[in-house]
């Protein structure tokens, strides 16, 4: 199998503070991977580095065999939090922005997903509830036809119905070869859709394991395995 993401000896500091140190990570094509870690462990930073949004790291990040930042940007769809938009902007304007900026944005795919997630494009960004906003972010992120999708904590503070819808749309619209990396600090609700988990602890990759292997070999639940990883010192 081909690797979608390869990270070698990656280190990153911000304001003289080490955030990530000597990260090595390989993710194969087609996987759904849970990126787990406490708040502040560096999950978002790692995603931003893979997406090519954060710069100034040491080491090597290869996405779909590409190392140049521009090439990486075009191959990674990162769940932007939409904070750069004016709160009064209408959703339909955000969609046309995406169509303009990303050549791989599929309007057909978006429309299908928006119907499923019941997104109302006539609303203003500021009128969206937390769950609605998260559904829009997922819809926009997954509508790009690309190889790697990074979903940064899409389940924070939303109700279980919305969560179910988001999980269903991940299963429904993920193409067979695409990789989805989804971060969370709580894993139970998404454990059933994950192929692997990657635990970030002490500024680096503490463990990378197949979820079925955790269940089969250790007879442990994924949440339990993750909690134990954080407990061991």
């Amino acid at each position: 199998m081909t690797n979608a993401i390869e990270i070698a000896n990656l280190s990153y500091s911000k304001n003289l503070k080490k955030i990530l140190e000597n990260v090595n990570l390989t993710i194969q094509q087609g996987k759904i991977v849970g990126l787990l870690g406490a708040n502040g462990a560096g999950k978002t930073t790692l995603m931003r580095l893979i997406a090519g949004v954060a710069k100034g790291s040491k080491g090597k990040i290869t996405v779909d065999n590409q190392q140049k930042i521009t090439a990486k940007k075009s191959r990674v769809s990162f769940s932007e939090q939409l904070n750069g938009f004016n709160p009064n902007i209408k959703i339909e304007k955000i969609i046309s922005f995406y169509q303009d900026v990303y050549p791989d944005f599929s309007t057909d795919k978006y429309n299908e997903m928006a119907g499923f997630l019941q997104i109302d494009e006539g609303l203003k960004l500021s009128a969206l509830s937390k769950g609605m906003r998260e559904k829009l972010i997922i819809g926009l992120t997954l509508s790009r036809e690309t190889q790697v999708y990074l979903l940064d904590e899409p389940f924070g503070g939303i109700d279980s119905m919305t969560r179910k819808k988001i999980i269903d749309s991940i299963i429904k619209w993920k193409s067979d070869d695409a990789v989805i990396l989804v971060s969370d600090h709580y894993v139970s609700e998404i454990a059933s859709i994950l192929d692997e988990i990657v635990i970030i602890k002490d500024k680096t990759v503490y463990a990378q394991k197949s979820t079925e292997e955790i269940r089969e070999k250790y007879r442990e639940g994924i949440e339990e395995y993750y909690e134990n990883a954080y407990r061991e010192e």
Binding site: I32, I167, D168, I171
Partner: peptide, 8 residues
Amino acid sequence: VDLTVNVN
């Protein structure tokens, strides 16, 4: 989708 699991 029906069983909420990964295609793999």
